[in-house]
Design a protein around this nucleic acid. Sequence first.
DNA 1: TGCGACATAATTGGCGCCAATTATTACGCC
DNA 2: GGCGTAATAATTGGCGCCAATTATGTCGCA
Lengths: 233, 233
Amino acid sequence: MTTRPTRQKEKRALASEIAQAIHMRAYRPGEWLRQIDLEEAFKATRFDVRSALDELAVRKTIEHVPNRGYRVAEIDLKTQRAIRDTRIILETAAVPGIMAGIDAATIARLSELADRFSQAVLSGTRIEQSEINSAFHHLMYAVCGNPVLEETIWGLRDRSRGSSVTVWSSHQALLNSDRDHHAMVEALRAGDATRLAELIAHHIVKDMIEAQAHAQPSTETSQSRGSEVRDEV
Amino acid sequence: MTTRPTRQKEKRALASEIAQAIHMRAYRPGEWLRQIDLEEAFKATRFDVRSALDELAVRKTIEHVPNRGYRVAEIDLKTQRAIRDTRIILETAAVPGIMAGIDAATIARLSELADRFSQAVLSGTRIEQSEINSAFHHLMYAVCGNPVLEETIWGLRDRSRGSSVTVWSSHQALLNSDRDHHAMVEALRAGDATRLAELIAHHIVKDMIEAQAHAQPSTETSQSRGSEVRDEV
DNA sequence: TGCGACATAATTGGCGCCAATTATTACGCC
DNA sequence: GGCGTAATAATTGGCGCCAATTATGTCGCA
């Protein structure tokens, strides 16, 4: 019982940390993730870094090129649409379960999160916004009664966020998200499944269109390590 | 440049091979996958085995218990149902895309695969049956026009098959599958989306109910290496 | 004879080193 | 002066060793 052999947890946690960093756009799409940089940035051993990178590659958050390394996945327009459509399928399909599993206490908590998000829109960091937003959707899908569905939804969300915007691309998009959250709470209160499904679908489409609109016009995917456009956050 | 530049491929392939072995029930649910056994069974190095195991763990095909090892995931009834419901959502949602993307040539190939499956039911190994069945569904979902959806469907299929039956649990189930395949081809020919969706949903439910019916009545999940029934926690 | 504790054996898993591969730079030739 | 080529530098990735942990077997004690 000395210093915990929680080595295992650290490894898994590292993958999450790196994923988080990617979500926060510390590393941008197409950028190479150098193992040496990561090991000192996260104070981890090379082996742990590689494990984490492998895990993220399996989850498609990053892409692995043999003998070249790992880089943040760059999602082309077509794939972006495919993810969006699949998300709509899954997230709207969760609505009946949510309606069945929701209770007053959960609605109250969702409402509170929606309020906190509104607050964060005005005076909060992008990280806070992102976290509250995640918490809101997490909580909502958590009550759908189907853990596998929930997990699949989350996997897809993570994947689209890896390369798209985590942080909202425009202030308008942020306001739209905010408005949607409150509307969702209302639909839940009213027990209006159809409306909730509509809101969710709209929420997804709006977000990802915004994201696309703000993506760099074209350019290509591979940039080599040396001359990287490193705009440190 | 001597002989083995394809090291990278071998590693990824190994995960597939092990997954395949699990599908074929070479290793049964709850069984521990000893690294030493695997490295000689698949003629791989320990490192490659571990990588493959990690990958499968991320994909939830197997489960990782720190300092104990990896074992074939054991899916409880509740999770089984959750997977089933999610599969139905996704696979029926793929139908419109399939209808839009299908062409005569593909229908012909599907029909041929359905015939080959019928043949395999009579005189084929279970491996052949399983492969033809996979090919059939793969081909069908491949034309849905949404690669992400296709991939998600496949991930879920793999996951359920890891612990459920790959190989059909009863001859009756096999005959039902066979019949369904031909019916699906017919629905495709007729352009009847509703019917196809019904068939798919039914196909999934039937398969997984059969699987459950043939699972060991109750008993505990974990068998440790020796023989005992270690089920405390 | 049954149960608990210790010793032994087997297995997992962390980690670092160095070869293989690729990017970068320098040089010389056209 | 530009370009192809060779040397150099930087990075990735394969792999084995050994410590940590857990399972198994044995012995002593009640």
